[in-house]
């Protein structure tokens, strides 16, 4: 009996806590469909009286959200693509190839990992301006082509693959390049998935750097475009919520399908930024 009561209390606590955690999302989605009258009611109305996409249409008409969306996708895909490529090559070199200073360079990288990005902004901003990349899409991609953190994760995984596989392939006449892409990368698929997901999320949600380097509407990505939109739509919170939904919803869908990969990656060393 006592056990049943505790059991019940555990569930009650977790459910209430879970509802609190989900409340902001619920409120965002529900408000995205409300009318101006419904959103300015007290006591607040939990659900919109009718489902209509009019808020989305109005938001997309007031600001180029379609453009932001395309930009975000473009930045995410190219950034993840390039970073994954440099990460695979570097992790392989640090894990399986021998060159002088290998461990020294690697421990220097680990030390660099604690530098916060905030500290690099000042110079990177000037660099971007100097390269004539200010207010362009490449400015959002180039500073993130090398990630020590992802290289570190992948190198650890590569280290766990037995050297005998490497020597088998070498004896069979395989080059390092072929071995890397034909053997190592397919075996490392779970680790790579985690890296790609974490990196994609970081890119999709990235706010601070775009805020520094993107000025014109046509080059904004979603999170930064959304904040700019608040000044125009400040008095229409339902439009803001519709726009926010566009930013948040794809990620939620992704999380439903890839929760395990993401959680594993986070548990292994944290999220960046």
């Amino acid at each position: 009996m006592k056990q049943k009561v505790t059991r019940f209390l555990v569930y009650l606590f977790l459910i209430i806590g879970g509802l609190i955690m989900l409340l902001p999302f619920f409120w965002m989605f529900s408000s995205a469909f409300k009318t101006t009258q419904e959103i300015n009611k007290f006591p607040p109305q939990w659900l919109p009286s009718s489902i209509s996409l009019v808020n989305f249409q109005r938001a997309f008409a007031m600001a180029p959200f379609a453009r932001y969306f395309v930009n975000s996708i473009l930045v995410m895909v190219s950034s993840v693509g390039i970073t994954t490529f440099t990460t695979i090559l570097a992790a392989f070199a640090f894990s399986k190839l021998h060159f002088p200073g290998r461990s020294l360079i690697f421990s220097m990288l680990l030390a660099l990992m604690m530098i916060p990005f905030e500290m690099l902004i000042i110079t990177n901003y000037s660099t971007v301006v100097q390269l004539k990349l200010w207010d362009t899409i490449p400015a959002l991609i180039l500073p993130f082509t090398s990630s020590i953190f992802y290289t570190y994760i992948l190198k650890n995984f590569f280290d766990s693959i037995s050297d005998s596989l490497y020597w088998s392939a070498r004896i069979d006449g395989s080059s390092n390049w072929r071995y890397l892409w034909k053997v190592m990368v397919p075996i490392a698929r779970p680790s790579l998935t985690t890296i790609i997901l974490l990196n994609g999320l970081a890119s999709w949600n990235s706010f601070m750097w775009p805020m520094y380097v993107i000025a014109s509407d046509k080059n904004r990505t979603l999170p930064w475009g959304l904040q700019v939109f608040t000044t125009e739509a400040g008095s229409y919170p339902e439009l803001l919520m519709a726009a926010s939904t566009v930013v948040v919803f794809p990620v939620i869908i992704l999380f439903f399908f890839c929760r395990k990969y993401i959680v594993r990656g986070v548990a292994r060393g944290g999220l960046k930024g």
């Binding site: 706010f207 926010s244 999380f255």
Partner: peptide, 17 residues
């Protein structure tokens, strides 16, 4: 899912909510 969701969503977008 409920407890982990805020980790993956854009903090600035949810901030508006």
């Amino acid at each position: 899912t409920a407890y982990f969701l805020p980790m993956v969503t854009s903090i600035t977008a949810v901030g508006l909510a």
